[in-house]
Amino acid sequence: MLEVRELTKIYEGGVLALDRVSFEVPKGQFLAVIGLSGSGKSTLLRCINRLVDPTSGKIIWDGYDITAASQDEMRHVRRKIGMVFQHFNLVARSSVLTNVLAGRLGYVNPFWSLINRFSRADVEKALGELERVGIRDKAMVRADELSGGQQQRVGIARAMMQEPQMILADEPVASLDPVLAHSIMQYLEQVNKEGVTVLCSLHFLDLVHRYANRVIALNQGKLVFDGLPTEIDDEKFKEIYGREAERVG
């Protein structure tokens, strides 16, 4: 159970990116976060694993106050939260396997990882995750030699290495073409079915309808919708995306 209470983020320049946002996510839900670009979706997801420090408000996860955790304590929180990025954020010059193994860094002993030693079990696990996303044969290839869709699969494998209880996916398919988008979303769906809570920001409503259990919508940092995907009618749509927006999906 993730509780977000009155979450506010004001960036240094004075931009109000989140404005007293409150919602709850029960364990195992697939929650879509929608909104125009600049509405605060990334900021919201990044506040949850504290890549961005919120200005005020609380985030409580299974009773633990994430917003009050120190940097050391965050290490333990973060390793249970996988993150998938729009631009994949792989380390381009490292091998696919190393990129995936990086997902274990929160668990392994720092000393051994600094000299690039992972246990046999971890390597096996990494290869298993690559198998699951169908690119085991690319394990030794440099990450930047993969196509976009393959890179995002590596991103998912890296997140899964963390044995996460929650995955934050920030527009995971926005840089991919629609066919690939579905295959990536299906991996997320599968992970969700295994019991992992997924918070996924999305651009296209058809993807929301297809994959999400529930939607929240942001507009200029404010929560303007919280409900089922099917509840987004034309009126709600205009509220979320603005009056001029045309519904295409």
Binding site: N49, L51, M74, R75, H76, V77, R78, R79, K80, I81, G82, M83, F85, H87, F88, N89, L90, V91, A92, A102, G103, R104, L105, G106, Y107, P110, G155, R158, A159, M161, Q162
Partner: peptide, 13 residues
């Protein structure tokens, strides 16, 4: 900054 954030997000020190 992307890869750095991604690794940091895994819980790496």
């Amino acid at each position: 900054p992307g890869p750095v954030e991604a690794v940091k997000a895994t819980g790496a020190n």
